[in-house]
């Protein structure tokens, strides 16, 4: 693998970076590659209020912002907030969002962009921001375009899209990944316990997480076809 110059991660929610790409990010940081996270929203409409409950609908954005800042500190990456509102990204004008992202990419000049695979990323915000991020790169001068790694997280991604181009076994970095996930205090337990299977009720959260999140896979976006 060629050494990247700068990696920009573009996801809509505080915690997408930790659940989706913390292992990959850790690997890049170990190589000394700068990583910047462009986070689309503050997860204002998230429904995990902590267990026990510590947040409410009005305090969620501030709490999740603090959690995100902590996670980014642990991952040792720069953070830039895009300022959209949770659950509304698909209703924004795609070109407007794309131009916003493009202006940031032109400043940051990444060699690699990581985002969600449109239509294969489960949450409408994931699909919408992935689409806008890819459009942003497409609108860039061809010679300046970074490579795009798109992450599909649907249950049927392999059947629908074939085998991913890049599959990282992130087990060597799994402690860092778990720490980043757990920095999202209000989100971590609610989401991880959602992965629990009825037949294996005594699994630890780490075991569940390793099973579901131990590999990070990406498709290299083809701008030619």
């Amino acid at each position: 693998m060629n050494k990247e110059k700068h990696v920009v991660v573009i996801y809509p929610h505080p915690d997408d970076e930790s659940f989706g790409a913390a292992g990959t990010i850790t690997q890049f940081r170990k190589q000394g590659v700068p990583v910047t996270y462009l986070c689309g929203t503050l997860g204002e409409m998230g429904r995990n209020m902590g267990n026990p409950i510590i947040a409410n609908r009005e305090t969620v954005p501030e709490i999740r912002k603090k959690e995100l800042i902590n996670a980014c500190k642990l991952l040792d990456i720069d953070l830039h907030l895009l300022g959209y509102r949770d659950k509304t990204l698909e209703f924004e004008d795609v070109t407007e969002v794309a131009l916003h992202i493009k202006s940031l990419l032109e400043k940051l000049q990444p060699s690699l962009v990581i985002t969600h695979y449109p239509d294969h990323a489960v949450h409408p915000d994931h699909n919408a921001l992935g689409r806008a991020a890819i459009e942003a790169v497409r609108l860039m001068d061809e010679n300046l375009r970074p490579t795009v790694w798109a992450q599909a997280i649907t249950n049927t991604a392999y059947e629908d899209l074939g085998k991913p181009d890049i599959v990282y076994d992130v087990e060597p970095y799994f402690d860092q990944k778990m720490a980043a996930i757990q920095a999202h205090k209000t989100q971590a337990s609610g989401i991880l316990s959602g992965f629990k299977r009825k037949d294996k009720s005594n699994e630890s959260l780490r075991e569940i997480a390793l099973e579901r999140l131990g590999k990070e896979a990406f498709y290299i976006w083809d701008f030619k076809s």
Binding site: R47, N48, M49, I53, R57
Partner: peptide, 22 residues
């Protein structure tokens, strides 16, 4: 909330919000 807003919500046993009226 903040001395002036009435927040009401329903949560499941994991602390996930199911319904809110404010």
């Amino acid at each position: 909330y903040e001395d002036k807003q009435l927040l009401m919500a329903g949560h499941d046993t994991e602390g996930r919000l199911l319904v809110a009226l404010q």
